[in-house]
Nucleic acid binder design. Structure first.
Length: 357
DNA sequence: AAACCTTCCAACCGCACTGGC
DNA sequence: GGCCAGTGCGGTTGGAAGGTT
């Protein structure tokens, strides 16, 4: 027996939402909370199915959704996370502040995927498409010489998977914990909810300075998952504990950006790619996020700026904006070329079969 | 100016998963 | 253990908007 439809679709409206419908949904949720999606439309006076209401709220009406153009940093993060996670949009969205999985998926499909394709990179495997042009001998020697890179990437991917699972468990714990501990507070990102306990005693793991507030969510040595958050913005002298009354409001928004330690794990992976891969190198305390590395600054920057030609960027204005302010346009172009050469070396060094990811 | 084409994204669809009964 | 409701997720689509011929 198949599943019954989520709702009786006879007489229910489909298609674009009108401002009036938006207002009804918004007003109802603001007044009553979400509750059951199935019963919500009738209560809110909407001729929609609950699923449609949920989608409209999740992808459009939520007050904490950021809309509009993606920043370079966001694009960079999407590309990096997609390289590791594939089309797991919800997982990627968890690590992009205020962006929904749907928006990220659309942006990937309409912009980033095409950009990769245009550059001759397979958007699925993130590998150059011209591998088939190599001679058999070249391919064999290349594969043999770089199996370790393959293993490194696989380690990176597995590490990412493990962290996602861990975070998911932590989130589940937080939600349960919140129900029995009113003193904790909840933080919602567009696709996930995280609750941080006010009374937890954290193990502070400093992971470095980032342009965005960084947070590391850590467990206790007992493994009981009593967890809190520590943030430190660039310029701050001290790490601040989330949950203390003075800091919460200031950092709630930042938390949406940095709820997870996954970004740091990405740094782990990319940085470790250069200097060898050891379990020790994966420890957050051993990470210097300011270190340059191919994946983070080369591959993604190139993708983000592939349309920039030397003649266009010689003015220096664009290049400064896109390269973090270093060098003139031609230097930037040369840097990009070097980055591309580097990343081609890196990607080419992986066996072509099976795919890297 | 009109027809056609392309791009983009909000919304839909269907499957998977989870938890309650 | 099986059924079912509720929800999450990823793939796909419809049509509006903009661009090109």
């Amino acid at each position: 027996m198949g599943r019954s439809p989520c709702c009786d679709k006879v007489g229910l409206k489909k298609g674009p939402w009108t401002p009036e419908e938006d207002q009804k949904l918004l007003a109802y949720i603001q007044q009553h909370g979400r509750g059951s999606w199935r019963s919500l439309p009738a209560k809110a006076g909407l001729q929609r199915c609950g699923k449609s209401c949920r989608l409209r709220w999740t992808n459009y009406l939520r007050p904490d959704i950021k809309r509009g153009k993606f920043s370079l940093q966001e694009e960079q993060t999407i590309i990096q996370l997609h390289a590791l996670l594939g089309n797991r949009w919800s997982a990627i969205a968890t690590h992009l502040s205020k962006r929904t999985d749907n928006e990220i998926k659309n942006y990937w499909n309409t912009h980033l995927k095409k950009r990769l394709d245009k550059m001759g990179i397979d958007p699925i495997t993130h590998k150059p498409k011209n591998d088939a042009l190599l001679s058999t001998n070249d391919a064999q020697s290349k594969n043999a010489a770089n199996l370790s890179h393959m293993a490194q990437w696989e380690s990176a991917r597995l590490e990412a998977e493990a962290r996602l699972v861990r975070e998911s468990k932590i989130r589940s714990h937080f939600i349960q914990h919140q129900q029995s501990n009113p003193s904790s507070f909840a933080l919602e990102s567009p696709t996930s909810t995280l609750t941080v306990s006010e009374n937890a005693h954290p193990i502070i793991t400093r992971i470095g300075v980032s342009p965005m507030p960084m947070i590391e969510l850590v467990g206790t040595t007992s493994g009981s998952c009593e967890t809190t958050g520590i943030v430190k913005e660039e310029g701050d002298q001290e790490w601040k504990e989330l949950g203390s009354s003075n800091n919460l409001a200031d950092y709630e928004e930042g938390l949406g950006t940095s709820l997870s330690s996954f970004t740091s794990s990405l740094h782990d992976m990319t940085i470790s790619m250069e200097g060898g891969w050891t379990p020790e190198s994966l420890r957050p305390s051993n990470i210097n996020v300011n270190s340059g590395n191919i994946m983070e600054e080369g591959y993604t920057n190139l993708l983000l700026n592939d349309s920039i030609e030397p003649s266009l960027s010689d003015s220096g204005k664009d290049s400064d904006e896109n390269s973090g302010g270093s060098g003139n346009g031609r230097d930037y172009y040369e840097d990009n070329k070097n980055y591309w050469d580097s990343i081609l070396d890196l990607v080419n060094s992986s066996p072509s079969d099976p795919p890297m990811f």
